[in-house]
Design a protein around this nucleic acid. Sequence first.
DNA 1: CGCTAGATTGAGGTCAATCAACGGGTGTGG
DNA 2: CCACACCCGTTGATTGACCTCAATCTAGCG
Lengths: 246, 246
Amino acid sequence: MSNISIYQSKIGKIPLFIGIEEALLDSILEHSRIVYLDKHAEIFSQGERTTKFYIVLDGLIKLFKMDANGAEAVLQIAKPGDNLLETIIFKNSLIPISAQVIENTTLLVIPADRMRQYIKHNEKLAANMLEVMADRSRQFISHFEQLSLKSVSQRVGWFLLKLFIENGKANTVKLPYDKLLIASYLGMKPETFSRTLQDFKRRGIDIQKDVVNLPTVFSLCDYCDIETASNCNKHGTPACPNPDCI
Amino acid sequence: MSNISIYQSKIGKIPLFIGIEEALLDSILEHSRIVYLDKHAEIFSQGERTTKFYIVLDGLIKLFKMDANGAEAVLQIAKPGDNLLETIIFKNSLIPISAQVIENTTLLVIPADRMRQYIKHNEKLAANMLEVMADRSRQFISHFEQLSLKSVSQRVGWFLLKLFIENGKANTVKLPYDKLLIASYLGMKPETFSRTLQDFKRRGIDIQKDVVNLPTVFSLCDYCDIETASNCNKHGTPACPNPDCI
DNA sequence: CGCTAGATTGAGGTCAATCAACGGGTGTGG
DNA sequence: CCACACCCGTTGATTGACCTCAATCTAGCG
């Protein structure tokens, strides 16, 4: 309950809270907690019960499924502004996934039943929540497409392309996470990811350790999909090399 | 706009509309259309634009992604009560997936902007929509888990188990769709699915064409996951052979 | 009765996983 | 400051699960 005020400006920019009156935000903050967590910390684990809803204020979080053998599949890498366990708000079931801190993280922790009340009585907040969930759903579908009908190299190409598009204009990016994590997110083993990056090098893309350099901004456009395209500022303009991104 | 009244009772039982006042339902129906579609009909296709929101009243619909080579991955098999394109309501982007009729289908077609208005001004409807989307999200996660970290035979076992649990007590079920469709939903080729069913036969499960017969109700419990468990009436009782379904 | 679509079976191929060894940073402690 | 250990990533050789291709079978249906 400490110095929540520091985060007040930050919170107003979170997708879920955009356009929400100050008074409501204050009330939400008042009944929430801020939690700081170090790398490797476990936030929650599949099969547990919880009554909390989380919003990432800072850091990075790995959301994943783990099977009996310890193999894990990464579902999402949550960034500032993302929220966790929105499904829990609406149905009090067991947590379906695990969450672990990748980079030192600040979380806003809101009691689920309180959040449910806020949403119920504020139509703008409800609308925001629906939009956020719809967004997630679209990301899911895109991820699903990659995992189920793309080859390893297509998946790597898609991932790199997304990075460049998020990054704006530059044709240089740094891999934002460990290669192990990226590999898992892309549904492959680290060895396979490494080999695939070597293939990309051979095909003319400059990669030094974790820095990727494109010869041209369009080098990866073959790997575009609908979801990625919708985030690309060249999409729909004559500059886009494949307007009907398969 | 024809004889919508026939469907009035049906509509009240749809998850999205449970607990909604008659007056609102009437208004929704008044501004909707009922559409009948035969097998193989294409409802919409990835990359298109639409301003419509659909609810399945009858039939079966395949929701899938298709790549340039014609390979397809089935994301969901929509049943009566399910809705399609809820993401479209909240963000007017391109349709991310394709939908095709599997079994003769009756659809309730609602203009997206009207639906958006209804949700905005009716908190119960908004709450229902959130719950429905949260449900979908959990199903997604379960499906994702299967596709990314289970073997072919585990996926088949999981699918059969789900069938038996949905079906209630009986230890006999009939496969509800073509094997081709099931295979695609499980992320494998029909040949592989067929071979895997043969494996199950050898392991003591009786399978004749599309009828599956379990020696005991617990034969498939090894293939349970959290989401499946939450739909199992034995879960949490002493009768459940593996209480902490991996 | 033949046609067609769905399902099965067989043989062979392939892509990515596995297993194992190595390299190069980084941090720690002597 | 160096020696050692450790983690992450790379590289190589091999395996194996699933796919591919092609032939055959079956059942429904005109």
